[in-house]
């Protein structure tokens, strides 16, 4: 049980960590100042959520690893995030669409986690769900604005959707860890969220005047169990972890 809980907490924490890092890459580069600030603040919330999940993961593991140890001293194959969040940012539209696809899932998942039988999980979810609700409001609105915008923004959003939508489906690939957590009432089976997620995304995409591509998640493994990551994750880690790798144990 402790092993499955540790794995599941890594999945929650790593999704937030890797997406938070990706989004923070926009800091100082966004098309306008307001968007720059919005992206940086979103990244900050995600890193805050990362800290709460990974701190608990370290406690559950019981080997004395802190949230920082887990974030900065693991290798690519130890990460349990879905591939969607490690994909490169692309243009602003692609970043926002990826954000929406994740935010929509994150909010539904956190709302369900509020009812977890594990008090710590439900408390973290209660805190994080408020932030996620605000994120989805913004990313959803921006996806609709850009999809139903100019000819160019529409084309770019459709291109982004064609690339990203298959990756979103990985969120619902489940294994025995999910089954064990669902049985214990700690974390809902992601499959139980699939229908409402697809309906919500479908409604947003249609409001954005975009078309959902025919898609399935084509990779032969999932980032959720660490057996599959894209080549991009290693590159993220070289940036994110270089200080602890070059100067082990260094602190502020």
């Amino acid at each position: 049980m402790a092993d499955a809980l540790f794995e599941s907490l890594l999945r929650l924490g790593d999704n937030a960590l890797i997406l938070g890092h990706r989004v923070s890459e926009w800091c100082g580069h966004a098309p306008v100042l307001e968007e720059d600030i919005a992206l940086a603040n979103t990244a900050l919330d995600l890193l805050g959520q990362t800290n709460l999940w990974l701190e608990y993961a370290g406690e559950v593991e019981g080997k004395g690893r802190s949230a920082d140890d887990l974030a900065f001293l693991r290798d690519a194959w130890d990460f349990r995030n879905v591939l969607l969040v490690e994909l490169p940012n692309g243009d602003f539209g692609q970043t926002i669409l990826r954000q929406y696809l994740y935010d929509q899932f994150n909010l539904m998942n956190l709302e369900a986690l509020k009812g977890s039988t594990d008090t710590r999980v439900s408390e973290i979810a209660e805190k994080a769900a408020k932030e996620a609700a605000y994120h989805v409001e913004r990313s959803r609105g921006t996806v609709v604005g850009l999809g139903d915008g100019t000819e160019e923004s529409h084309r770019r959003m459709q291109d982004a959707l064609n690339i990203l939508y298959p990756y979103a489906l990985e969120l619902f690939i489940t294994d025995e860890v999910d089954a064990e957590m669902a049985k214990a009432g700690i974390i809902p089976d992601p499959k139980s969220l699939e229908d409402t997620y697809l309906a919500a995304v479908g409604a947003t995409i249609s409001e954005a005047t975009l078309e959902l591509p025919q898609a399935h998640f084509g990779h032969r493994g999932s980032g959720r169990d660490g057996r599959m990551h894209t080549e991009h994750l290693g590159h993220i880690l070289t940036q994110m972890q270089w200080l602890q790798r070059a100067y082990p144990g260094q602190s502020w």
């Binding site: 307001e34 968007e35 600030i37 919005a38 940086a40 603040n41 979103t42 919330d45 409001e137 913004r138």
Partner: peptide, 13 residues
């Protein structure tokens, strides 16, 4: 509304 986020996490512009 200018931006849903502001100079700190708790503010909007």
């Amino acid at each position: 509304l200018l931006s849903q986020f502001g100079s700190t996490p708790c503010k909007a512009q």
